[in-house]
Computed example of a mutant assay.
Amino acid sequence: MDVSYIDSYSYSRLLGPQFPSPSLPGGFPGSPGGFPGSPGGQQAPTAPPPAFIPQQQTATPFAVDPGAISLCLFRNTYIWLRNGASFWYFPTFVGPRSVAGFRWNGRFWTIFGIDTRRIVSFTCF
């Protein structure tokens, strides 16, 4: 799978104790400041996503518009990627070309960020 992401284990292992968190406004995912732009930090959802996989809507030929996916903030969202992967996601931050939040791995939520150019389509509930 060519999807790049940083889970909480990899993040702390990569940076080590000498770098507790990058100095971004609002902190970094997993740090006390939470995600950039989220008031008071954002915790992972406490419940699993829905038990079904929605039918994929019409795919978009270009990158997903950040304005469109921002309507799914803090909602269970199903995402389909250009490489064929798909998964439940809980977005908590949308930037100009990326989305950050939590990805369901089948057992629990993990921190995950992705470039919107890798997303083919999405639907939120």
Rank of each mutant, 00 (worst) to 15 (best):
D2I: 10
D2G: 15
S4V: 13
Y5T: 09
Y5E: 10
Y9G: 06
S10T: 10
Y11T: 11
S12W: 11
R13V: 10
G16T: 07
P20V: 02
P22K: 07
P22S: 09
S23Y: 15
P25W: 09
G26S: 02
F28P: 00
G33T: 02
G34P: 09
G34V: 02
G37C: 05
G37P: 02
S38P: 00
G40I: 03
Q43W: 05
A44H: 05
A47D: 09
P48M: 04
P49V: 01
A51Q: 12
F52I: 00
P54R: 11
P54E: 07
Q55V: 09
Q56D: 06
Q56H: 09
Q56Y: 03
Q57S: 15
T58G: 12
T60C: 09
V64K: 00
V64R: 01
A68T: 04
I69Q: 09
I69R: 08
L71F: 06
C72P: 04
C72M: 03
F74Q: 14
R75W: 01
N76E: 01
N76S: 06
I79K: 06
W80E: 01
R82L: 13
R82E: 06
N83M: 06
G84C: 08
S86F: 05
S86Q: 09
S86R: 04
S86H: 13
F87K: 02
W88S: 05
P91K: 10
F93Q: 11
P96A: 15
R97N: 13
S98N: 05
S98T: 06
A100P: 00
A100Q: 10
F102K: 01
F102S: 02
F102L: 01
W104G: 05
R107S: 15
F108C: 03
F108S: 12
G113C: 07
D115C: 04
T116V: 12
R118D: 14
S121F: 01
S121K: 00
T123Q: 15
C124T: 03
